[in-house]
Design a protein around this nucleic acid. Structure first.
Lengths: 165, 165
DNA sequence: CGAGAGTTATTTAAGTTTTAACAACGTCGC
DNA sequence: GCGACGTTGTTAAAACTTAAATAACTCTCG
């Protein structure tokens, strides 16, 4: 019955532990900060803002639910709830997909577009203030590289997120 | 009434936009991944696991609620709920603080310690697999630097998070 | 065609987080 | 002492997320 991990796990080195601590602090603080900023200035959390951004960039400002969920890296269930809320706010609406009777398109209303345009400058300013105005161009490059490497290692296998293969 | 932002906001450059995209993808995927891993292997989300880790490292495995909330970067309210849940699981318990009658200490039970020790190897392995086994030592250094810079810029002013000064 | 299998999106219920308000205690100054 | 003010931790309600189940539709293949 040697189901146990036969070997002592490789713990993190001091450098790695330190980096991990820094990472956790920075990412949670930033996410909190952006959530508060957007909640205050645009009346929605960061994830919801991201949905509006996606829609605003899509052709005809509309997108299939599943595609939107994939781009935003959230489950379809979560997206359903989110779109329902955004619909209540009048910023997004749904329509049946012409080509697939199961499908739905979410589209950004004019009002949603206005809200987005109004919120964007403040959001960009917050992102700048937190990151890009504080990092050198080299560091920005490093950050992108590091995040790319991380993303490669995170092909989700989970129940509802088998995306990115 | 020139309340409007007088100038066109400085949008992100292409490099910055790319880095930001990478950052958002990587961080959300990683957090999702760790949440699932811990939920599956230890029956709790990442934040709760972090609380147990904090407690395990504290003297006598106990800590004041506010200090714990600060270290974990969460609000006291959120911590109250979290500890209530962990208490229901039998992994943490509360006790009155002897020196301050308002205060509470949370402490890690023996059972909580066992759960933590059982979950730790898998968690470290997941973190390794996602990050440290994929990055060069230089990149780990860069990551730590970048996150430190970000953290400096995020001194929260918000209602319940005026922490880190 | 038509059964079986997979896809799309939603719903329900349970769990978590946020927000605002609150009770209880401590501290400082007078 | 005592009153104003700050701190500690909790709570109620609303908002949000997750997990599991489901309805409706499409696709594949015999």
């Amino acid at each position: 019955m040697s189901t146990e991990p036969a070997v002592e796990p490789r713990w993190l080195t001091d450098e790695e532990q330190f980096a991990w601590q820094c990472y956790l602090h920075a990412t949670t603080l930033l996410e909190d900060h952006l959530d508060r900023q957007l909640q205050r200035d645009a009346g929605m959390p960061h994830v919801y803002y991201g949905l509006l951004v996606q829609l605003s960039r899509a052709p005809r400002r509309r997108m299939r639910m599943t595609e939107l969920a994939q781009n935003a890296k959230i489950t379809r269930s979560r997206l359903s709830h989110a779109i329902a809320r955004l619909e209540r706010s009048g910023w997004v609406r749904r329509e049946n997909c012409p080509s697939d009777k199961r499908g739905q398109n979410a589209y950004l209303t004019d009002e949603g577009m206005r809200v987005l345009e109004k919120a964007a400058p403040g959001h960009v300013a917050a992102v700048r203030a937190a990151i890009f105005d504080r990092l050198t161009p080299e560091q920005v490059g490093h950050l992108a590289e590091i995040c790319q490497v991380m993303t490669e290692g995170l092909q989700p296998q989970g129940a509802d997120l088998p995306w990115l293969r």
